[in-house]
Design a protein around this nucleic acid. Sequence first.
DNA 1: CCGCATCCGTTACGATACTG
DNA 2: CAGTATCGTAACGGATGCGG
Lengths: 119, 119
Amino acid sequence: MERSASVTFRSACPIASGLDVLGDKWSLVVIRDLIVHEQRTYSEFLSAPEGISTNILALRLQQLTDLGLITRVNLNGPHRNNAYRLTDKGAALRPVLEELAKWSQVHLRALHPNILSLD
Amino acid sequence: MERSASVTFRSACPIASGLDVLGDKWSLVVIRDLIVHEQRTYSEFLSAPEGISTNILALRLQQLTDLGLITRVNLNGPHRNNAYRLTDKGAALRPVLEELAKWSQVHLRALHPNILSLD
DNA sequence: CCGCATCCGTTACGATACTG
DNA sequence: CAGTATCGTAACGGATGCGG
């Protein structure tokens, strides 16, 4: 079943509009998991170290699906062991996450000494 | 007066950590204004088309100052017509915003037909 | 006036228990 | 296993007040 994404955009600015869609603490973490792992199940998302709660995860998965950034992959039947993958639209966020990661590694280390260096 | 930034990081992941600091709907909009305009006063921030409310703006300016991403510039006296500028740390976010803007221009146009193309 | 701070209603988030 | 229901808490948002 396909719901349509209902987003209200604050302005015509592409930065603000991007944040209208992705500007929360969890959406890009879900995208990150799918960039790193290609494919994830509900419980695999839950096992990430950040500790997203079940209702928030379900809400984000729904919203990101509605936006066309991720799709559900039915592996073995209707509700068991299904998984999510990125669409091209979602995969196109990779440069955004890469730049954010680079910035954080350099500029958050003082506040967060054991932040990971990827690569 | 310098408060220290109190952020709680969910994990060692640089992406999640970046979102712990900037993952809300307003912080990067404030940064955007300072990238575009170099320097902004409180009321100039308020005049942006997104319509941030006064308490949220004051809170974000405080937090971004505490994090060392922006600084207050005293122009004419202690409280009138003072303004904010980016620090080097804040200015280093430019590539993140550029990639976000590029993504939005391409992938949000269907949902938001009159989104602006910068450049 | 300008730059906030305070108050307060509304909305989003978050932990946990529970269901198909 | 993949979500939903519930309910308490925190963030947001508008109105307004107040000091310099």
